[in-house]
């Protein structure tokens, strides 16, 4: 108890400090989104900006596009990360150990660095094309991966960056798994799918969903990757909102803030949905209680 209290006291300044600034920022965003802007002398509360957002077809299309791209990339990264975690756990080889070490590298590198590496390598006149031309294949043409309509560049960059993150978080959980459960199930005649679904999945799924939520919430609101690799024509929400903000038209601020509120609510809502799913699935808290 004593240690707990001291700990609480010690972190109190940090908690108070950050929560004050965080709450003020959130409060200001929300109040601005309802049109309350004392700077411009607007004191009336209005739903107008939210109505404008949902009447805006471009916004709806951009929202769906952003959601699909980020959800797809997060889901793929999580699934690949999960698979790799199991592979590394089971394999005792030198290669597997090396892979789990090297997975740390993309984790510490910032996104912007990954983007630059991507452009360097996969641009139409990038390293890869130059190398292949050097080797004598002059007709070789790389498909457009930067600013392409299907957002392949963004998807690949997120995969490259997020898969190692998922791998490392899940590896910790997977390594804790007792082989005994698995062997017992096998002994009792469970087939591969049964072992996966009833034994392994329930043990790792809470960690899997946590990783998925973190990766998704991050990439849903991230600016730099879509700004540098995305197509202007098929832009993603964070880029659209930031461009509006940079117009330095102060009358746009309530609209921009309501955009921010909407994407935050969607990200939080979706995270809640995933948590609920994890709770309901085998291995979730719901099952543990009964």
């Amino acid at each position: 108890m004593q240690t707990k209290r001291t700990f609480g006291l010690l972190i109190a300044p940090f908690v108070v400090f950050t929560s004050v600034f965080f709450l003020i920022a959130v409060g200001k965003t929300v109040s601005l989104s309802f049109g309350y802007d004392p700077l411009l002398g607007h004191h009336q509360i209005t739903w107008r900006y939210y109505q404008a957002i949902f009447a805006n077809k471009t916004f709806i299309r951009t929202l769906l596009r952003t959601f699909s791209v980020t959800f797809l990339s997060s889901l793929l990264a999580s699934l690949i990360g999960l698979r790799l975690a199991f592979l590394i756990k089971r394999s005792q080889s030198w290669g597997a150990r090396f892979l789990s070490r090297i997975a740390n590298v993309p984790l510490v590198l910032p996104h912007i660095f990954m983007v630059l590496v991507f452009i360097w390598c996969f641009d139409q006149t990038g390293l890869l094309v130059r190398l292949i031309h050097l080797l004598g294949w002059h007709q070789f043409q790389l498909p457009v991966l930067i600013g392409d309509p299907y957002q392949v560049g963004i998807l690949l960059t997120y995969l490259w960056k997020e898969t190692p993150y998922v791998l490392l978080t899940l590896l910790l959980v997977v390594r804790q798994l007792e082989d005994d459960y698995f062997l017992a199930a096998k002994n009792l005649g469970a087939n591969r799918w049964q072992r996966l679904w009833y034994v392994e999945w329930p043990l790792v799924q809470p960690a899997f969903f946590n990783a998925l939520i973190i990766v998704f919430s991050f990439s849903f609101g991230a600016y730099e990757v879509p700004a540098l690799l995305g197509s202007q024509k098929y832009e993603l929400l964070p880029v659209m909102i930031y461009d509006l903000y940079q117009q330095s038209d102060l009358t746009l601020r309530p609209l921009i803030m309501s955009f921010n509120v909407v994407i935050s609510v969607i990200a939080i809502g979706f995270a809640g949905l995933l948590l609920g799913l994890s709770w309901w699935l085998p291995g979730g808290r719901r099952r543990q209680r009964t």
């Binding site: 457009v144 600013g147 309509p149 700004a227 540098l228 197509s231 202007q232 024509k233």
Partner: peptide, 9 residues
């Protein structure tokens, strides 16, 4: 360039 589908940023 690129049929106007992309522009330099």
């Amino acid at each position: 360039w690129q049929q106007g589908k992309n522009y330099p940023k």
